[in-house]
Design a protein around this nucleic acid. Sequence first.
DNA 1: GGCCTCACTTGACATGCTGTCAATCTACCA
DNA 2: TGGTAGATTGACAGCATGTCAAGTGAGGCC
Lengths: 202, 202
Amino acid sequence: MSSEASETYGDPQTRTRILDAAWRLVEETGAEFKLADVASRAGVSRQALYLHFGDRSGLLVALVDHIDKSLGSESLRAEVFGAPTGVESLRRWVETMSWYSAKIDAVTRVLETAQYRDEAMTAAYRNRMDRRQGLLRAIIDRIAGEGGLAEGWTQEEAAQLAYAVTLPSSWRELTRELGWTAEEYADRIWKVLERALVSRVG
Amino acid sequence: MSSEASETYGDPQTRTRILDAAWRLVEETGAEFKLADVASRAGVSRQALYLHFGDRSGLLVALVDHIDKSLGSESLRAEVFGAPTGVESLRRWVETMSWYSAKIDAVTRVLETAQYRDEAMTAAYRNRMDRRQGLLRAIIDRIAGEGGLAEGWTQEEAAQLAYAVTLPSSWRELTRELGWTAEEYADRIWKVLERALVSRVG
DNA sequence: GGCCTCACTTGACATGCTGTCAATCTACCA
DNA sequence: TGGTAGATTGACAGCATGTCAAGTGAGGCC
């Protein structure tokens, strides 16, 4: 259960091949992807997965990290924080998040369903969500610092609300099920957040 | 897969015993509950579950229905619609939903994770969500009819936003993970919806 | 060249749960 | 006496995960 899968086992190239294969397979088949399929697609033995990642959860945890690195989530973060104002920063965040969600939705869904499987999974998922909350908190703090936070909210409450409103499940429901485009999502959710959390100027 | 489990098999009492056992077990153990455990807790054979519900998905679908009936979701609906105004109706809906979510969260979570398992599951889940959307749409229409809908939204958009903001996953995150009480949830989410969707009077 | 180690393969196997089947049991009813 | 609905029993197939032990093969080291 949730073996740590020693940080450094094997050839990094093999590891990457496995992760890429897993990624594609998750995109195609969702949460029911099989390790045997990942292995065969990556051109390695099923056993190799266990050697590299310990178990299914270990693979998923590594996959999330792999994807973040592949999509350059760091630079996205920088772009959001590079906004001239806190309010603009929040708007950019919503926009960026919408774009990003579209790319990782399949994997996110798997993560969500596996979220309670074991300790390692839970930790990995919470960690991810905690980082997101922290980011939003920083943005809200900046808005508050600039006097832009609507009255009636503490900074913590505002950040948590922004976080809850922009959860992946909500993004998925609005775009995948109700047919909103990523752009419509960004525009409308932004409008909600602006009206609810940002003080009216003038 | 997703056998229909003939609408009327066996003793209704047995059926109820099984569903109650399943309910409690889901509350305790979450999505990984085992059919064998449900059976033994209900005091019936494992086979009985298959005779009554066809398969795991069939049991889940029946469980949701069973719970709705047990909690008298019909009367709740009536209370929400009995509000004097559309805006008050929406406020009551949020409040009621918060209370209701607390009772069925465990089952909802199982539903969510099982949502893509097969056709029957998907249909049952979507059906549930569609009803909720319909309800919100009716409330929003009433608000619009009373001239209370904020400008910038179509009625459909407003209803879908209200729906997305009040998704179970969001409720869970805010209460279970971030520690909000059901009341705080209702108050704050209502405030968000009001500011975002309801036109300012005067 | 001999040797060792790392990276990985191979094949077998235990485990655990779902779903299916056929045979059997037991009231209750006609 | 017979039949039938409701359920039990036990066996079994299928399938995925995870574990184990032995083997292969390429490089590096002395």
